[in-house]
Computed example of a mutant assay.
Amino acid sequence: MNTAERAVVLELRGVSRVHGEGAAEVHALREIDLTLVEGELVAVMGPSGSGKSTLLTLLGGLDRPTSGEVLIEGQSLADLSTKQLAAMRRRSVGYVFQDLNLIPTLTAVENVGLPLELDGASRRTARRTALKSLEDVELAELADRFPDEMSGGQQQRVAIARALVGPRRVLLADEPTGALDSQTGEAVLRVLRKRIDRGGAGLLVTHDARHAAWADRIVFLRDGQITDTTASELSAEALLAAGRHV
């Protein structure tokens, strides 16, 4: 199935985000149009201050655009109340950050199941669903270990399992392998890619061209604007060269 035949999961339509007013005004994003379909992973590259983190916060409903529209599975976030937006984030959107934000006093399975419990699931149901998510990242045998009893790569896989637990199909990842060695980072990206291939959609912010190569396409940001988009069939060296010229 080609991209045109897949359902749209994430969409930005003419999105801009402006911080401050007057002389202090900063355009974090300028008229961004971006669409992600099911089964698609898009990498975002660009220098510091280019708007990458702002893009993630808008897609995840953590902030609202100054103008334009953000849609998740056809639902415009502008039409949602604060309470509805929080529910949308719990049910549809998963985040993976370099700072994993795992709760140290909870086991792996408890960390993964927590979003489900917050959304009203019973502890038994949350555990069963969380175990399935841990199986998907090949960590079911560590379900009852605490974060400090796991390696960095294992903790990152727990974070991915939590991000995609239950019916969630949207994954937003901000430098998810930044604190890992190259081999562990590749293993984490392999897990992420596998989950996206099962019908989700994901946006991966990274500065590493080798990691961007796991995506279906790469978007380059500079000064809040998309300056180039390229297919990820390019080598890491070619991606780095493209990034230097945007």
Results as ranks from 00 to 15, higher is better:
residue 237 E to H: 12
residue 193 R to H: 14
residue 64 R to V: 10
residue 5 E to V: 10
residue 127 R to S: 07
residue 33 D to P: 09
residue 239 L to V: 15
residue 72 I to G: 00
residue 117 E to W: 10
residue 80 L to H: 11
residue 85 L to V: 08
residue 114 L to R: 09
residue 169 R to P: 01
residue 82 T to R: 15
residue 86 A to D: 13
residue 65 P to G: 06
residue 89 R to K: 08
residue 46 G to I: 03
residue 190 R to H: 14
residue 121 A to W: 11
residue 11 E to M: 10
residue 234 L to V: 11
residue 60 G to S: 02
residue 218 I to G: 00
residue 128 R to A: 15
residue 154 Q to F: 01
residue 106 L to K: 07
residue 36 L to Q: 01
residue 153 G to Q: 04
residue 82 T to D: 15
residue 100 L to T: 04
residue 241 A to L: 14
residue 33 D to L: 06
residue 6 R to T: 09
residue 222 R to F: 01
residue 62 L to P: 03
residue 202 G to D: 05
residue 85 L to N: 03
residue 17 R to I: 01
residue 214 W to D: 04
residue 51 G to T: 03
residue 144 D to V: 09
residue 147 P to M: 12
residue 113 G to W: 00
residue 30 R to P: 00
residue 76 S to H: 10
residue 197 D to R: 15
residue 99 D to T: 12
residue 218 I to A: 02
residue 220 F to Y: 13
residue 186 E to T: 15
residue 98 Q to A: 04
residue 44 V to D: 00
residue 224 G to D: 02
residue 114 L to V: 09
residue 243 G to M: 11
residue 97 F to V: 03
residue 41 L to H: 05
residue 81 S to H: 10
residue 39 G to M: 07
residue 105 T to D: 11
residue 185 G to I: 01
residue 218 I to K: 00
residue 229 T to E: 15
residue 126 A to E: 05
residue 212 A to I: 07
residue 123 R to C: 04
residue 42 V to N: 00
residue 173 A to C: 12
residue 227 T to S: 11
residue 22 G to Q: 06
residue 84 Q to K: 11
residue 43 A to K: 02
residue 8 V to C: 12
residue 12 L to Y: 03
residue 215 A to D: 07
residue 196 I to E: 02
residue 13 R to Y: 06
residue 201 A to D: 05
residue 118 L to N: 11
residue 203 L to Y: 04
residue 214 W to S: 12
residue 62 L to D: 03
residue 190 R to T: 15
residue 216 D to A: 11
residue 243 G to E: 05
residue 44 V to H: 02
residue 133 S to Y: 09
residue 139 L to W: 03
residue 99 D to N: 13
residue 194 K to A: 15
residue 110 E to A: 13
residue 211 H to W: 08
residue 151 S to K: 10
residue 147 P to A: 06
residue 6 R to C: 09
residue 180 L to R: 02
residue 172 L to H: 04
residue 83 K to C: 04
residue 90 R to A: 13
residue 225 Q to R: 15
residue 95 Y to Q: 02
residue 161 A to C: 12
residue 197 D to P: 00
residue 4 A to I: 12
residue 87 A to W: 13
residue 106 L to E: 05
residue 219 V to I: 13
residue 72 I to M: 05
residue 139 L to K: 06
residue 97 F to P: 00
residue 107 T to H: 03
residue 166 G to D: 07
residue 226 I to Q: 02
residue 198 R to M: 12
residue 241 A to C: 07
residue 56 L to P: 00
residue 242 A to H: 14
residue 6 R to G: 06
residue 200 G to W: 00
residue 31 E to L: 12
residue 65 P to Y: 04
residue 196 I to M: 14
residue 141 E to N: 13
residue 90 R to T: 05
residue 213 A to Y: 02
residue 78 A to W: 09
residue 183 Q to I: 13
residue 39 G to H: 06
residue 119 D to T: 07
residue 204 L to R: 04
residue 48 S to A: 10
residue 122 S to M: 08
residue 91 R to I: 03
residue 62 L to Q: 08
residue 171 L to N: 03
residue 239 L to Q: 04
residue 209 A to R: 00
residue 67 S to G: 12
residue 226 I to E: 01
residue 151 S to Q: 08
residue 81 S to W: 08
residue 85 L to E: 07
residue 20 G to F: 08
residue 41 L to K: 06
residue 146 F to V: 07
residue 173 A to S: 11
residue 234 L to T: 06
residue 129 T to P: 00
residue 204 L to T: 05
residue 36 L to V: 14
residue 237 E to P: 02
residue 139 L to Q: 04
residue 6 R to I: 07
residue 91 R to S: 13
residue 36 L to M: 10
